[in-house]
């Protein structure tokens, strides 16, 4: 019979490298049509990070996401980047992109100030315009300013910057120090059905409440969380590289190494916790890796809640769960219901 259980797990996870320098550099050019080009040495590995970097750049310049063209991942053409690792792209590369955009914007402000008869610090960039703070009707289109900057002032609006999280090395004896710039937090609660005759576990529902600082793009945050949970389910229940006695893998294929598919996916409810990190770009931290961190723990706690067995080694395959259920039954004499 299927028995339902629920389990929770919370976690913390750092953004960026442990102590070591992990800088990102970025270049932002504002074009005469009011669009911008971002040069970054990071690589799009499927998570949508280039879109997030475009949004950060666009926000700083007061333009829209689609107005930013991102050139990435070419060591000849793009500035150095530590890369899409350690959940650092939004936070570290994002900070670099924002700072580079800010520098380009400073040039735009210097150029626009005499055009609008004010000082640069009286200007802001918003809705594709450079406008006078408090007097939004006094404005110039950002493209006109960029063009004026190039052809009249001889000052192309290009900014470059880099960012590296502030850390303090750990004491080798005690491990005390400040290894990371910031951390994110999350809780996932899983609901599972465990078949106590077969040991099979089905994840029914996962509620995932994640902190990522400001969600630069909530849709991409949700996608990361859904993907992380898929990976977490595989880690919890299915996936394992097996070796023979001679140390050779025996299941190096997707027939015998089973990854979750769409049919294994539970109902996922994503909840983004209100949070703002003053050290991140527009308050953002990151979301890539932490999405998977609590999933297995929550599922395993739910299995215990459902059938009262604690599996202490992953993955909790049906065989393992059934063996634990049978072992527990063996300890308690079977009761045969009267009547």
């Amino acid at each position: 019979m299927k028995r339902r259980g629920r389990g929770m797990a919370c976690m913390w996870y750092p953004i960026g490298f442990t102590v070591s320098a992990n800088p990102s550099a970025a270049v932002v050019k504002v074009n005469e049509d009011g669009t911008a080009t971002l040069l970054t040495g990071t690589v799009e590995t499927g998570q949508g990070s280039l879109t997030v970097l475009a949004q950060i750049t666009a926000q700083e310049l007061g333009i829209a996401t689609d107005d930013v063209h991102v050139v990435s991942a070419d060591t000849d053409a793009t500035p150095m980047d530590t890369g899409p690792i350690a959940s650092r792209t939004t936070y570290v590369t994002g900070n670099a992109a924002r700072l580079a955009a800010e520098k380009a914007k400073e040039i735009l402000f210097e150029v626009a100030a005499p055009m609008l008869g004010v000082k640069p610090n009286q200007l802001e960039a918003r809705d594709h315009k450079i406008l006078v703070k408090g007097y939004p009707q006094r404005n110039v289109h950002i493209g006109d300013v960029a063009n004026h900057a190039r052809v009249v002032m001889g000052q192309p609006p290009i900014g470059s910057a880099s960012f590296n999280p502030a850390t303090v090395a750990l004491d080798p004896e005690t491990g005390q120090g400040k290894p990371f710039g910031t951390y994110v937090y999350a809780t996932q609660i899983a609901e599972v059905d465990v078949d106590d005759e077969t040991g099979e576990v089905e994840v029914i529902r996962v509620v995932a409440s994640h902190d990522c600082g400001t969600a630069i793009n909530p849709m991409l945050v949700e996608a990361q969380i859904e993907g992380g949970i898929a990976m977490g389910i595989g880690f919890a229940l299915q996936e394992e590289i097996l070796f023979d006695n001679a140390g050779r893998q025996i299941n190096p294929n997707l027939t015998n190494y089973i990854v979750p598919t769409a049919l294994d996916m539970p109902e996922i409810e994503v909840d983004i916790v209100d949070s703002h990190d003053p050290t991140g770009p527009f308050g953002a931290k990151g979301v890539g890796e932490p999405t998977l961190v609590p999933t297995a723990a929550a599922i395993l706690n739910a299995i215990h809640n459902a059938v009262g067995v604690r599996i202490t080694s992953l993955p909790a395959t049906a065989e393992k769960v059934l063996a634990a259920i049978n072992a527990k039954r063996g300890q308690q004499p079977k009761r045969i219901a009267a009547g």
């Binding site: 005390q176 916790v273 703002h276």
Partner: peptide, 18 residues
């Protein structure tokens, strides 16, 4: 490691998820 943590919302995430 003795680092003072900022922007800590683990309690919020627990309560919201619950």
């Amino acid at each position: 490691t003795g680092q003072t943590l900022h922007s800590v919302v683990v309690k919020e995430s627990l309560l919201r998820a619950a």
